[in-house]
């Protein structure tokens, strides 16, 4: 007799834990062939709230990690994902990819994580500056993470879209609350499991599944979210996010790249989510001693 398969329960990921949605609700997305993908959590407003709280709590610690340490942790995500490539490939195929496309997507996702792991301790040197002010002051500008970033993952991508938006955000020291692709949610949940097993502190990445229409307003009006990244292509949804962002002057970034392309990555995805902070300090200039003695 053939062995009975143990089915996976897909949960959401908040503060390093895998709860079911507090609402107890679920939805059942189907693939093109009409096959149900599973019982997926239909997250509620309260789940969004909990995820933002978790992200805020994690922000201080994550942003103060050394850049080197963040780089190591991001690289660890790639390692762990590599070890579970077959599961992602299966899920992608189940969600409608060809085998070849699925393999390519997973490969690219791993490579992209490695790419952003490498940026962790390099972007600062490129985006910061020492500014030659016309007075006796030392003046420098550095990049600092914006804080809690809400990420609305692209609708048409299960893995690579999410990775492409989440990694640059956490590379720069932000923490994220991700709304996974509503109809392609499987890889998002498995990605959460990878994250959870790879030294990323709880709360740095929080992933919710469910209805964007339901969650977007909560996320975009939340007063403790500092920035939003929108990866979708629905201009009405974007407008709604932008309007809601006004409440606390959130920064909103919309990207419509084709994430499956090898060059859909770059420094600006990191630096867009950075604030520039400028510090001044007087320079005491005593007597006639100069550096050209």
């Amino acid at each position: 007799m053939e062995r009975l398969e143990v089915l996976k329960t897909y949960k959401i990921y908040i503060g390093g834990q895998f709860p079911r949605t507090e609402s107890g609700r679920y939805y059942m997305p189907v693939n093109k062939a009409g096959k149900a993908l599973g019982n997926i959590c239909l997250s509620s407003r309260k789940d969004v709230r909990n995820a933002v709280s978790a992200a805020r709590k994690a922000f201080g610690g994550w942003s103060e990690r050394t850049a080197f340490n963040r780089g190591q942790i991001l690289y660890r995500i790639a390692e762990m994902l590599e070890g579970r490539r077959s599961q992602f490939i299966e899920e992608l195929i189940l969600q409608g990819s060809t085998k070849k496309a699925a393999e390519e997507e997973v490969n690219l996702a791993i490579d992209r994580i490695v790419y952003y792991a490498g940026w962790c301790d390099k972007y600062q040197a490129i985006v910061s500056s020492v500014n030659p002010v016309a007075s006796s002051h030392f003046n420098f500008s550095v990049a600092e993470p914006m804080g809690v970033v809400g990420v609305v993952a692209p609708e048409n991508s299960s893995l690579i879209g999410l990775v492409s938006l989440v990694l640059p955000a956490i590379c720069g020291g932000n923490t994220v609350v991700v709304l996974a692709a509503e109809h392609l949610p499987l890889c998002a949940v498995t990605f959460a499991e990878v994250v959870n097993s790879s030294d990323v502190p709880g709360g740095v990445i929080n992933i919710l599944t469910g209805s964007n229409k339901e969650m977007n307003p909560t996320l975009s009006t939340h007063m403790d979210v500092n920035a939003l990244v929108y990866g979708g292509n629905d201009s009405a949804a974007l407008k709604e996010l932008q309007e809601n962002a006004v409440l606390n002057v959130k920064r909103v970034f919309a990207y419509s790249n084709n994430w499956a392309k090898a060059d859909a990555q770059g420094l600006h995805f990191v630096s867009d989510l950075q604030e520039i902070k400028t510090t001044w300090h007087p320079i005491e200039n005593i007597g006639g001693a100069t550096s050209s003695y």
Binding site: S136, P282, I283, E284, N285, I286
Partner: peptide, 13 residues
């Protein structure tokens, strides 16, 4: 003397 305040030259200028 232990309390002699620091003096910032640029501020004085």
């Amino acid at each position: 003397y232990l309390n002699s305040p620091a003096v910032d030259k640029v501020g004085v200028e």
